[in-house]
Each structure stands twice: as C-alpha cells, then as structure tokens.
Amino acid sequence: MWWKTARTRLDLGQRGMIMGILNTTPDSFSDGGSHAGVEAAVAHARQMIADGAAIIDIGGESTRPGAGEVAVAEEIARTAPVIAALRAEWAGAISIDTMKASVAAAALEAGADIVNDVSGLTADPDMERVCVESGCGVAVMHMQGDPRTMQVAPDYEDVVAEVRRFFEERLLSLVAAGIDAEAICFDPGIGFGKTVEHNLALLRALANLNVGGRPLLLGVSRKSFIGRVLGSTDLADRSWPTVAITAWAREAGAMIHRVHEVRPNTQALRMTEAILQGGNSAFSG
C-alpha cells in the first residue's frame, strides 16, 4: 500500500506511520499557544521527528467544536513560514491541516507534501484544483456539519455505512476531478460530528471502512470522547488511552495515526506490528 504525495510515495505496506500534530494556533483544544512562532514550532517538530514521526501535520486554525474562523491571511502567516523553515532542514513529509484552498496553495508552495482537509475537500470549491495542480497527497476526512456546529446534535441512521458511502463518493469524485487515487487516504473523523457511541462504532468497524484499497488515517489523540468514556475531565488522563487506541487501530488496519505524543504511540505501533508480523519491528527512535 502506497500513499503518493507531492514529493514521494510513502510505503504503508508493512509499517504504520505517526503523523505528529503541530498546532500554530492560540486556541486549539489541548495545546493552544504552546507552539506559536516559527522557532518554537520548528523546535517541537524536531522533537516529534526524533521521537518517530514520519509526517508533521501543521495547522493554523483550530477545528475544535465551536472554534471561530481564522482569516486566510492570518492562517497563512501562522503556517507557511513554519513549513518553509522545517522544509529547509528536513526531507520528510509535511502536511497542511486546512479547509481553505488559498492556505493549502501557500503551504504547498512553502514545501508541504499533503493537504489534510477535515471537510473532505468539500468546503472550498477551489481545493480540488489546488490538489490536482500540485499532485499532493490528500487526506479526506468525514465530518457532519462544520467545526462550529458539528457537536450540537450529531445524528446517523448507521454511522459506519454513512461514513463508508462518503468515502466511496469522494473517491469517485476526486479521481474524476483529476486527483490520483494513490494520493488519497481516508479519515473517519472521530469526534467531528459524532457522539461517543458513534466514535466507538467507527473504531469497532475500522476494518469495514477500507475503500478502494486506500489507507486509513485515524485521529483520536486526547479527544473528549476518551474523557467521557473514562469519566474524567483531566486532559492528562487521555494520553495512555490514545496509545491503546493506536495499538487497536493498527491491528484493525489503520496505517496513519495523527497524535500529539509521538514517542509512546510510535512504540505502540512497532510493538503491535512485531506481534502481527512475527518479526522484529522494534522502536529505534
């Protein structure tokens, strides 16, 4: 299994990959303001790379429930300089987390390889064109509603079937628009317009969400449904359950794991793969 990006093809045939989260926002739900400014952001990226991240996902607009919208110019100012600085010193994969075509274009010009769009390339009518012209990798996420309204009253008849149908439609539509099928991966959008029960149903059914042989990306890191399951409001209590989900999801076939804490989740991937494959996939970070 390969994931084609603007500069390379990522081999996901045997080993999963960690996508390290780098928020350059003041208001992200768990690390807002921690990595503002190019120097602090790049320093954090270096640490995540040392800890095992194969992809760094850079975002300049919070998508937490109820978050306000950020102007295009501000989002570019938060992300493009960080991407350019990281690209100058690292040859690995860089992703831009945005729903805006202009932000994606600026990020790709600065050196990004992948567009990670929580709207599944539906929010901005120019996003498909930007992705086609750049030949970038595309992470297509499912979301019911938008970040400002998505958690008001999520409702599905069958969340697994509906998410799968969305993936099938997006694959056909994006390929017809000119995006290489090999450049597409899918994300079920845990926590994006879903209740706790919807999230758990999707996690149980990950093996049924494989569409077109494309890889699955999973983002559960520190999300509120974990706290609700555990009956805890302490953000720190979500760290090890995230690691547990990473191991479970890798066994179920999810190959890309978007997380805040890279090292323990990388260790979970390598240990799970050693068990699955019967070989030595030991962590060496």
Rank of each mutant, 00 (worst) to 15 (best):
D126Y: 10
V138R: 04
C136T: 01
A110W: 01
D113T: 06
D117G: 07
V118I: 15
G135P: 11
L108V: 07
C136M: 00
L108Q: 02
A139F: 05
G137P: 10
N116I: 13
D113A: 04
I114D: 03
D124N: 12
G111F: 08
V132R: 09
N116M: 14
D124F: 07
H142C: 00
M127H: 11
T122R: 15
V132H: 02
V118L: 11
T122E: 15
G111T: 12
G120A: 00
M143R: 07
E133N: 14
A123H: 13
E133W: 02
G120R: 01
A107S: 13
V140W: 09
D113C: 03
V130I: 14
V138L: 06
E128T: 12
D117F: 04
V118G: 01
G120W: 00
G137Q: 12
G120Y: 00
C136S: 03
V130L: 07
H142G: 02
L108R: 11
V118A: 12
V140L: 06
L108P: 00
D113L: 06
M141C: 08
R129C: 12
S119C: 06
V130H: 03
E109G: 11
A112K: 10
V115D: 09
G111P: 13
A110T: 09
V132N: 05
G120K: 01
E109W: 05
G111M: 06
M143S: 13
E109A: 15
V115Y: 11
G137E: 07
E133M: 08
H142D: 02
A110L: 08
P125L: 06
D124Q: 09
P125Y: 10
V132D: 04
V138G: 01
D124V: 02
M141D: 05
P125E: 13
G135Q: 13
V138N: 00
E128H: 13
N116W: 08
S134F: 09
E128Q: 14
D126V: 07
R129E: 15
G111I: 11
V138M: 04
E133Y: 03
T122Y: 07
D126T: 05
G137M: 06
V118D: 04
A123C: 05
T122W: 11
M141K: 02
M141F: 10
N116L: 13
D113P: 00
G137T: 07
L121M: 13
T122F: 08
S134D: 08
H142E: 00
E109P: 07
D117A: 05
A112V: 11
A139D: 06
